[in-house]
């Protein structure tokens, strides 16, 4: 009883404080909800996925906006890795640990994943495609991100550039990543702006030597032999 009497008030205060902090955190979360679109975690995820091929779980959730490519999937990966693909990692990991518990958890995760996949598409055959594609897509993103960064660093906009302008450029590469050509396919209407974008691509190519492109031929053919760049500044003062 004494305990309650002595510590009742502090307890209530502590609870209130916690509730307050929790509320503040939640609010802060909400306020910054606009930012996440910037896709910062992409690189980390992508790199992880490049290392261990069949870890499909994180992908489906984190990149719902970036749907899989149509081309690459049917190429090679289709035949085998289907249901087996997800298994290897569970096996590799659990061994040193208390096996039973691990396996149960992995199994549950797998079940859940399977269910998710089932929901995503009614056709079973497509399940593996999605997993496979998410890997490919992550791979693609890694290279695209590296290209993008080099171009951002090389892009100097003319003073007539405005935030509502946009120009689309077509880039052609060799399988080794050499720049064959770059041309404006959708003009911004401002020749100086268009040229600044074109110059950025050429300069990035020179700085990098070659553009980073995936060694897998299918992936290269699907996304990097020809791709487009959309230049639309969002950070200008006017």
């Amino acid at each position: 009883m004494n305990f309650v009497r002595d510590y009742g008030a502090p307890l209530v205060l502590a609870l209130l404080l916690h509730a307050g902090v929790a509320a503040a955190l939640l609010r802060g979360w909400d306020a910054e909800a606009d930012e996440p679109q910037v896709v910062t975690p992409r690189i980390i995820q992508a790199q992880l996925l490049v290392m261990e091929k069949p870890v499909p779980k994180p992908r489906p959730r984190s990149v719902p906006t970036a749907p899989p490519k149509p081309k690459p999937a049917p190429a090679k990966p289709l035949p085998k890795p289907e249901p087996q693909a997800p298994k290897p990692p569970p096996k590799a990991l659990p061994k040193p640990d208390p096996e039973v518990e691990r396996r149960a958890r992995e199994e549950a995760a797998r079940q859940q994943r399977l269910q998710e996949l089932m929901e995503r598409s009614t056709k079973l055959a497509l399940d593996e495609d999605v997993a496979e594609e998410s890997v490919i897509e992550a791979n693609t993103m890694t290279y695209a991100d590296a290209i993008s960064r080099a171009i951002v660093a090389a892009w100097s906009r003319p003073p007539s550039a405005r935030n509502d302008m946009q120009a689309r450029l077509q880039v052609d590469l060799t399988p080794s990543g050499d720049l064959i050509g770059v041309r404006v396919v959708d003009t911004s209407g401002n020749p100086a702006f268009d040229r600044s974008a074109e110059t950025a691509v050429r300069k990035a190519a020179r700085t990098l030597g070659t553009f980073p492109v995936p060694p897998e031929q299918s992936l290269f053919e699907a996304h990097f032999r020809h791709f487009t760049l959309l230049f639309k500044p969002e950070d200008l003062l006017r």
């Binding site: 100097s156 689309r168 020809h226 487009t228 760049l229 639309k232 500044p233």
Partner: peptide
């Protein structure tokens, strides 16, 4: 429709410096 398929990278920022 070559332009509408494949990869498109969107560049929204730059590093402006004297020409």
């Amino acid at each position: 429709a070559l332009a509408s398929q494949g990869l498109e990278i969107v560049i929204t920022e730059g590093w402006d410096s004297p020409t």
